[in-house]
C-alpha cells in the first residue's frame, strides 16, 4: 500500500527549565492510504507531540530539531498527484494542509468548540476561513454537506444544527468535532484520545461511527490512545511508543498475538479483558523515564527483565523481524522469556 504520509527521523524537543525534553526522538514510520494506525503507549511517551508535529501545531516551546514529513495527495482514482514537505509549509499553505489534507481532533477536544457559537456557525466559520463552499450561492450546498456529515456521525441534524455546544453531551460534541474535521475532505484524520473521558456506551458509539465512516469515506486515520482495547477494535496497524520512540510496529493481529518488544508484551499483559484469568495479568516494574535525563542505551532497559550490557550501552533501532513487523530490541528473539519474568 502506498504511503500518504512518510515521517523520517523526526525529532521534537521542548525547552523546559530543567533542560531539553526529548519528546520525539528520530521517529520514522509511514501512514498508508486508507489505513487506521494506532499509536499506543503510556502517558508522557510523546504521542500527542507526534500528532501535533504532523499538523505543525506544536506550542512555541517546542522545536523540530530534525527530520522530514512527506505528505502525498492522491487523485480520486488513486493516482499519486503531488508530494509536499510538511515541515517547510508556511501560512496559507499550512492552513490549507491542516484542514483540507490532514485534520486533527485534539485530546482536550470536549472544550474545543466555541461556547457562544451554534454548531451551524462552527461549520460556516470553518468553511469561510478556508474559502470552501463559501461563494455567494454556495450556502445551501455547505449546509447540505455539513448536515450530511452530522448524520454520518449518527447525529440528528435537525436537533444539533442550531444547538449551542453546552446543549450537547460529551459524546455528541466529540462527534460534532469529527464531522467538522471531515468538512474539507481531508485524506488524513488524526484523533488524539477520541474516547478517553467518555462513557462506555458513548465510546462504543464513537467507535462504531468511526468504523462506519471508514467504510463510506476514503481517508486514513491515525489515532492516539493509551487504551489498548480501542486499538484492538479499530486499528489495522499498531505502533508502540516508548520514551519518544516507536519501539514496535506491525499489523494489529500480530502485535496483539505475537508482540516481540518486552514493553509491548508488558503493556498487553497489564490490561485485563473480561475473560482473562487473574493469573494472566502482570505489571511492568518501575516507571517511565525522565525525558530530560534519559537512560543510556535502550530507554526501556531500567524496567526490562531481559536487559544486558549491550542494552545498557547501545540503543536498538527498529528492524524487520518478519514481513511488516518491526521491533527495536536487541533481544527480541528471547522476548517470550519476558513473560515469565513479568509473572512475579
Amino acid at each position: 500500500m502506498e504511503p500518504i504520509l512518510s515521517v523520517r527521523d523526526l525529532t521534537i524537543e521542548y525547552a523546559a527549565r530543567r533542560g531539553k525534553v526529548r519528546a520525539i526522538r528520530s521517529v520514522s514510520f509511514d501512514v498508508r492510504r486508507g489505513e487506521a494506525l494506532a499509536l499506543i503507549g503510556e502517558s508522557g511517551s510523546g504521542k500527542t507531540t507526534l500528532g501535533l508535529g504532523i499538523v505543525q501545531l506544536l506550542p512555541s516551546t517546542a522545536r523540530i530539531a530534525g527530520g522530514s514529513i512527506v505528505y502525498r495527495r492522491y487523485s480520486d482514482t488513486g493516482q499519486p498527484m503531488r508530494e509536499t514537505e510538511v515541515l517547510t509549509l508556511k501560512d496559507a499553505d499550512l492552513r490549507r494542509f491542516r484542514w483540507a489534507e490532514c485534520a486533527m481532533v485534539f485530546q482536550s477536544a470536549l472544550n474545543a468548540l466555541n461556547p457562544v457559537l451554534r454548531i451551524s456557525d462552527h461549520f460556516a466559520d470553518t468553511a469561510k476561513a478556508h474559502r470552501y463552499l463559501s461563494g455567494p450561492r454556495q450556502g445551501a450546498a455547505l449546509t447540505e454537506r455539513s448536515r450530511h456529515l452530522l448524520s454520518r456521525v449518527r447525529l440528528d441534524p435537525d436537533r444539533v444544527w442550531r444547538a449551542f455546544p453546552h446543549e450537547l453531551s460529551g459524546g455528541m460534541r466529540q462527534r460534532v468535532l469529527i464531522a467538522l474535521s471531515l468538512l474539507l475532505e481531508p485524506q488524513l484524520l488524526i484523533l488524539d484520545e477520541p474516547t478517553t473521558a467518555l462513557d462506555i456506551l458513548t465510546q462504543r458509539n464513537i467507535m462504531d461511527v468511526l468504523k462506519e465512516l471508514r467504510t463510506q469515506l476514503d481517508f486514513s486515520l491515525v489515532f492516539i490512545s493509551h487504551d489498548l482495547s480501542l486499538a484492538a477494535e479499530l486499528a489495522d496497524r499498531v505502533a508502540t511508543v516508548y520514551a519518544g520512540k516507536i519501539v514496535e510496529i506491525g499489523e494489529v493481529y500480530t502485535i496483539f498475538r505475537n508482540p516481540h518488544h518486552p514493553y509491548t508484551i508488558g503493556l498487553i499483559k497489564a490490561v485485563p479483558t473480561l475473560t482473562s484469568d487473574k493469573s494472566e495479568l502482570t505489571s511492568i516494574p518501575g516507571s517511565p523515564p525522565d525525558l530530560i535525563e534519559l537512560p543510556s542505551g535502550c530507554k526501556f532497559h531500567p524496567r526490562c527483565p531481559l536487559a544486558d550490557d549491550h542494552c545498557r550501552r547501545e540503543e536498538p533501532e527498529l528492524i524487520d523481524v518478519e514481513s511488516g513487523h518491526r521491533v527495536a530490541c536487541w533481544r527480541w528473539q528471547d522476548a517470550r522469556a519476558v513473560l515469565k519474568a513479568y509473572q512475579v
Binding site: 465510546q203 462504543r204 482495547s229 477494535e233 494489529v252 493481529y253 473480561l274
Partner: peptide, 16 residues
C-alpha cells in the same frame, strides 16, 4: 448485559 457487550477488549479477535 448492554455494558458488557459494548466494552471493547484488548484482544482484536475477541473484540471484533
Amino acid at each position: 448485559q448492554v455494558l458488557l457487550s459494548a466494552i471493547p477488549e484488548a484482544d482484536p479477535d475477541r473484540t471484533r
